[in-house]
Structure formats: structure tokens, C-alpha cells
Simulated assay, not measured.
Amino acid sequence: MIDVDHIDAHPLDARARRGRRAQQSGSTARRWRGTSGASDALGLALIAPAAIGLALVILFLSRQVDSRATAQSAAEAAAQAAAQERSPAAAVAAARSVTDAMLIDDTTCDNPSVRVDVSAFAAPVEPFVSVEVSCSTSLAGLEPIGASAPAAHTYVAYATVDPLRGVRP
């Protein structure tokens, strides 16, 4: 006869017991995990508006930086283009053409104004051209942050006219 008390249990029985314990502890973990849904929703409801507001503020600040850079580079490029011309009328036309090509984005440069000064274009000593570009940052799409209209950014650039080139008065 075989003594049943001395026979080792089959290894699968031990695994089965461990599996049942794991399932029982898993149900406890699931129970705790299931109750955190309300706090997750509350956290999302509190953090989402703050994140959206922060994104809008960053967008507003980046538009201001872009507006300043665009106005400055347009003034410098227009002054250089005007200094290459041979007559004051052609210099004004070249400066306006450059600024019209560069200041096309309304969100970057809203209501641009350009003033070209060619009074010293044919001066006997150190002839130069100055171009003044002024524009403001658009607030389109940024109404939720309640930003006030920023002041216009004005940049003046000077370019020296080469006195040895041919000049037509």
C-alpha cells in the first residue's frame, strides 16, 4: 500500500495555490486602483485650464518677440535696398518694395507703417538712407488671456550710400 501522507504534492498544485493568492491580491489592487478615477478627473479639471492659459501666454510672448524681430529685420533690409539705388525716388521705391514683401503676416506685424528718409541721399559727405518701420503685435486668437493691446514697435535702420557709385540727382 502506498502511504498518501508521504507523497510530495505535485508541483502544479503549488503553482495553482500561488496563482490563486495572486488573483486575490490583484483584486485588492484593482479595488484601490478603481477608486482613483474621481481624483484623476478632478486633477485634470483643475490643471487643464491652467495649462491652456500658460500656452496662450507663451503664444502671446512669442508673437511679441517675432513682431520685434520682423520689424527690425524689415527696417534693416529696406535701408540696405534703398542704399543700393541710384536716385532718391528709386531708393524709396526699393525700400517700400522690401517692406511690403517682408511685412505680410498680420499676426506678426499688424498695421505696419514705413517711413523712408532720403534727405541725405545725395549729401556730399557721408550720404545715408534711413528707414523707420513701426508695427504692433496682433491679439487675434488671444482674447481668453485678456491681454491689452501692446504698444507699437518702432525700429530705425540706417544704411550708408556708397559715394563713389554713379548718382543721378
Results as ranks from 00 to 15, higher is better:
A9G: 14
H10G: 15
H10M: 10
P11W: 05
P11F: 01
P11S: 00
L12G: 15
D13E: 12
R15W: 14
R17H: 01
R18H: 10
R18C: 12
G19N: 12
R20T: 15
R21C: 02
R21G: 07
A22D: 02
A22E: 02
Q23G: 10
Q23F: 09
Q24G: 11
S25L: 04
G26N: 07
G26K: 00
S27A: 14
S27W: 03
T28M: 11
T28K: 11
T28V: 15
T28N: 10
A29W: 03
A29I: 02
R30W: 02
R30H: 11
R31N: 11
R31D: 10
W32A: 15
W32D: 11
R33Q: 12
R33T: 13
G34S: 07
G34R: 06
T35R: 08
T35L: 12
T35K: 08
S36H: 01
S36I: 01
G37H: 06
G37T: 08
A38P: 08
S39I: 15
S39D: 09
D40L: 15
D40T: 15
D40I: 15
D40F: 15
A41M: 05
A41S: 04
A41C: 03
A41N: 00
L42A: 15
L42R: 04
L42H: 08
G43A: 11
G43R: 01
L44C: 13
L44H: 09
L44D: 04
A45D: 04
A45K: 00
L46T: 08
L46Y: 00
L46S: 10
L46P: 08
L46D: 07
I47H: 00
A48L: 01
P49Y: 04
P49E: 03
P49S: 07
P49T: 05
A51K: 00
A51H: 00
I52V: 14
L54M: 13
L54P: 14
A55L: 10
A55K: 01
V57P: 06
I58W: 03
I58F: 08
I58Q: 04
F60E: 00
F60W: 10
L61W: 07
L61G: 14
S62P: 03
S62N: 12
